[in-house]
Amino acid sequence: MTGFDDRERAFENQFARDADLQFRIVARRNRLVGEWAADKMGLTAEESDAYAKAVVQADFEEAGDEDVIRKLLGDLLSAGVEIDEAAVRAALDAKGVEARRQFIEGV
């Protein structure tokens, strides 16, 4: 039975590591897309940093990306940036690829 228990424990540990990595990638993606949006809104460096952190926090409101998309789209439109939901989703996808690449390269 210990062989089975060892494999089960190893699987659980791998699952936890994978979940942690995915969480970190999504958080980095959200930070990157927050910086992208801050640049579009013309925020200062300090404001950009605070805004990027706010985007990361917005992801904790509900499961999935809709909360982040809603925040980005609302803030961009409020700032007078002409953008649509498709462009925000495209930026989110692009920053997701960049975040994953950064983790792979150890940046």
Rank of each mutant, 00 (worst) to 15 (best):
G42P: 07
L32D: 00
D93F: 08
I25V: 15
L32M: 10
A79H: 10
M41Q: 06
E61K: 11
I69K: 13
R17I: 03
D75R: 05
T44F: 00
I25A: 05
G96F: 04
L73C: 05
E12D: 11
V97Y: 08
D20Y: 05
G80Q: 07
G74F: 10
A19E: 13
D6F: 06
D75H: 11
R31P: 00
E85N: 04
A86R: 10
G34S: 04
Q57A: 15
V107Q: 13
L72S: 04
D75T: 01
T44K: 05
E8P: 00
V97S: 10
V68S: 04
V81C: 06
D39E: 14
R100V: 02
Y51F: 15
A99M: 05
R24V: 01
R31W: 13
V88I: 11
A19L: 07
R70C: 01
V81W: 01
K53N: 11
D18W: 02
V97K: 15
A19P: 00
F60Y: 14
M1S: 14
Q102T: 00
D49F: 03
A91C: 03
N13R: 15
R29G: 02
G74M: 06
I104Y: 12
I104G: 10
A94G: 04
E61W: 01
I104P: 04
D49V: 09
A63L: 09
G80D: 07
E62H: 06
R9C: 02
W36G: 00
Q57P: 01
F4Q: 12
A50Q: 14
E82M: 04
A10Q: 15
E8H: 12
F11M: 09
E82D: 15
N30K: 00
R70Q: 09
N13H: 12
D59Y: 04
R24H: 06
D20H: 09
A54K: 13
A99H: 05
A54S: 14
L43W: 02
E105N: 13
V88G: 00
Y51S: 03
G96K: 07
A10E: 14
F23T: 12
V88E: 01
M1W: 09
V56G: 01
E62Q: 11
D18E: 14
E66R: 13
D5I: 09
A94W: 03
D18S: 12
A16Y: 06
A50R: 14
D39H: 10
K40S: 08
A63G: 09
E98N: 01
A38T: 05
V26W: 01
A27N: 08
G34I: 04
V88L: 02
E85T: 08
Q57S: 11
R17K: 15
R7M: 14
L32R: 10
F4L: 13
M1E: 12
G3Y: 11
A94T: 11
V107F: 09
L43M: 15
D39W: 00
D49L: 09
F60A: 15
D39L: 06
A94K: 15
V33A: 05
F11L: 12
A63H: 08
G64I: 07
A79T: 06
D93I: 05
A37L: 03
Q22W: 00
A52V: 05
L92N: 08
R9T: 11
L21W: 03
V33C: 10
E105H: 08
D93C: 00
V68E: 04
G106R: 10
